[in-house]
Simulated assay, not measured.
Amino acid sequence: MSFKEDFKKFAMRGNVIDMAVGVIIGGAFGKIVGSFVNDIIMPPLGMAIGKMDFTNLFVSLNGQHYATLEAAKKAGAPVLAYGSFINAVLDFVILAFIIFIMVRQINRLNPPPAPKPDPRLCPYCRSEIADDATRCPHCTSQLD
């Protein structure tokens, strides 16, 4: 089989296509959650703790003071932008919580299948036999 045919066979499998769709939807969903955190959650949270904008929380590593993160980046200063990290952590926590809620609801709609009953065993050789068997296929004993 040629490389091209082998790759085509791999790429057209159902699992690969399903995964690709999941990644694309996940990326779009990540943007929605990012906007939710940055535009809805962070402004009131910043106001509640003293009108602070988390995106402007940073430490300049060159020892100079800059009014904003943007000003420090324009000056080419090395910075630790820990406010952006806080936003990213909040994005992750909110996204993980939403996925948890979704999976929990899906599991409620689709309960796991009932466990199978214990198999019927031959009383003589203890081998598994069919429920309607009249003779054990393993030891040939007559069954009740």
Rank of each mutant, 00 (worst) to 15 (best):
H65V: 02
N107T: 05
C139D: 14
V103D: 13
E70F: 11
V103M: 14
G34K: 12
D18C: 04
N38A: 11
Y66M: 01
I49A: 02
P43T: 08
D53T: 06
R120N: 07
L61V: 03
P43L: 10
Y124T: 04
M52W: 10
A114P: 06
G14Y: 12
R126P: 00
L90N: 04
N15S: 11
I94N: 04
E5G: 09
I98T: 01
A11I: 09
G83Q: 06
R104C: 04
V16M: 11
D18H: 13
K74C: 01
C122N: 11
H138E: 12
I41K: 08
A133C: 07
A67Q: 13
A75C: 02
G22N: 14
E70G: 08
D132Y: 15
K74L: 10
F29A: 07
Q105F: 15
M52H: 09
V79R: 05
I86D: 01
F92R: 04
I25G: 05
D118K: 13
I106T: 08
A28P: 06
P113I: 11
A81E: 01
M1D: 14
I98K: 06
F54W: 07
F54H: 04
A130Q: 13
V79F: 08
F100D: 02
L57F: 14
V79T: 07
S127Y: 10
L90A: 10
C136N: 08
A11Q: 10
I24N: 05
A72T: 01
K51A: 08
F85E: 00
F100A: 04
P117Y: 09
K116M: 10
F85H: 02
R108C: 01
I32S: 03
K9F: 07
F97Q: 03
P113V: 09
Y124L: 02
S60H: 12
V93L: 15
F92E: 03
A71I: 05
T55K: 14
A48H: 11
N87H: 08
L61C: 05
N87Y: 06
Q64E: 15
A88Q: 12
P113K: 10
I99C: 03
I106E: 05
A114T: 03
F97H: 04
K4I: 12
Y82C: 00
I94D: 02
P119Y: 14
D53Q: 14
D18G: 06
L109V: 07
Q142D: 12
M52F: 11
F54I: 01
P44W: 15
V16A: 13
A114K: 11
K51P: 02
G14P: 01
L69G: 03
A67P: 01
V21Y: 14
L57V: 01
F36H: 02
F29R: 00
T134G: 12
P119T: 07
P137Y: 06
Q142C: 00
